[in-house]
Design a protein around this nucleic acid. Structure first.
Lengths: 135, 135
DNA sequence: ATTGACGTTCCAGTCACTGGAGCCCTCATA
DNA sequence: TATGAGGGCTCCAGTGACTGGAACGTCAAT
């Protein structure tokens, strides 16, 4: 199967598939003319990575997960560990975004949004809040 | 004031401040020796950008917001518009992350997490779901 | 033989920094 | 006066995960 159909099959852009090949996530065979030839296992991997990526896993995790997937001697604990760590990161992001959302919503509510220049949003940005120390 | 103290004052890393100078967000005066000399207005801008960035605004938005901040003839509607758009993007991100979190939580719950290889997480990734079309 | 839709590689750009190399400047101390 | 520490400066490369484009090869059909 050529790259276009592999793209159609996996739902990934052609460019992305080539990129995944470049970084060694997949390694499809080549035809006599140099064209990539995607077999069942390649398509499977592509689908796998597409799913993992859509859940926000980094490429590095996808690589590990893929190795686990292909390793019959794996322990599900390893998979669960990676997934749990990722879930924790997702929750962290959600928390941060919720904080931003709260602050911003409040500011937006306070702002008249008319033709006058007075703006609590800008006022807030201009004000130096409590100094933060990134640890 | 030298760059180190500006960093201390604004809570931004020295490198970041130099970067903001490079891209023209700030433009502090220079001493006879070429050292940057941060005045009140520079420090103010730095604080402003730090605040905006901490709420997730892109540099491009910060630039616009900063211009609005310094423009006495601004209309608060413009500020509110930018902020509202950004808030909408934050909400989009939260929604996506929540979806990921739900799916992943479910999968993790199903996974035994022991020494055996059976793993619903990997099973799910290997399975091709409904084909998605990115518009 | 030519057209058009495929395929290939390689390079540059995205975003917002961050790290490092290699250099200069200043001040205090020996 | 030499030296060392601790600033400062610029420029280049790398991050993550692609994406766009140029320049070129291949293939089937006309």
């Amino acid at each position: 199967m050529n790259i276009k159909n592999a793209a159609l099959d996996s739902g990934l852009p052609v460019k992305t598939i080539r990129y995944y090949n470049d970084i060694g996530l997949i390694n499809p065979a080549r035809d006599h003319n140099g064209y990539r030839d995607f077999r069942e296992t390649d398509l499977h991997k592509l689908t796998f990575v597409a799913q993992a990526r859509s859940l926000g896993f980094m490429i590095g995790d996808c690589r590990t997960l893929l190795a686990l997937y292909e390793n019959d001697a794996r322990e599900s604990a390893d998979v669960k560990h990676i997934a749990s760590q990722h879930l924790a990161q997702i929750h962290e992001k959600i928390t941060k975004l919720n904080t931003m959302s709260d602050t911003l919503s409040h500011l937006i509510n306070e702002c008249a949004g008319d033709h006058r220049p007075d703006c609590p949003i800008l006022d807030n940005f201009g004000k130096r809040g409590s100094k933060k120390n990134g640890t």
